[in-house]
Amino acid sequence: MRSSLPRTGRLVLAAGLFSLLAACNTASRTGQYAALEGYTPDPTLKTATKSNLTGRVRNACTVVQGRLQKVEPSTLAAPCGCYADRTLASLDKDEVASYRATGYFNDTATAKALNALDSCKLPRPV
């Protein structure tokens, strides 16, 4: 199944998640992510606590949403906290394992992240 986000939206999410939020990276579609070639996930993701992962996602959200909304990232602390909490709480163990291994949300985790954006009244990346 192809993600409903356009390529630029996925790249923005991926960049945000690396600093930390949500994009997809699947082995079956590696050509689609040629712009991310050479990317190496942070090795500390493998052993990071769930609380640390939530903090990383919150930070990525503030960076990405700050750029998207053209506001100071600090003004997004509450909605991005909502987003990070809801997203990480909704992921199953396989989705968390995938995120730890790749630094990206897989397709099912991305769908959950998009639902969390909607729930927390944050705009989706275009």
Rank of each mutant, 00 (worst) to 15 (best):
R7Q: 14
G38V: 15
T26R: 07
E37M: 12
L53P: 03
A22E: 01
P41C: 12
A23N: 13
T8C: 06
L17P: 03
N25P: 04
C24G: 13
T47M: 04
C24L: 12
T8W: 14
T44Y: 01
N52W: 04
L20H: 05
F18Q: 09
Q32R: 11
R10E: 11
S19E: 02
F18S: 07
N25H: 00
E37N: 14
T47G: 08
V57C: 01
A14K: 05
T40Q: 14
V12C: 03
K46W: 02
Q32E: 13
L36Q: 11
S51K: 05
T47N: 13
R56A: 00
K50F: 05
Y33W: 15
D42H: 10
G55R: 00
E37R: 12
G9W: 09
L45H: 09
G38D: 06
L5G: 00
L20C: 11
L13K: 01
T49Q: 06
D42C: 12
N52R: 05
P41F: 06
G55H: 08
P41S: 09
S3P: 13
R29S: 03
G9D: 09
A48P: 07
Y39T: 14
E37Y: 12
T49A: 06
G38E: 13
D42N: 13
L53S: 05
R56E: 02
D42E: 04
V12D: 01
T8A: 02
A15T: 00
P6R: 02
L5H: 00
T8Y: 10
T26N: 10
V57G: 03
A23V: 05
S19H: 15
A22N: 06
C24Q: 09
A35D: 15
S51F: 09
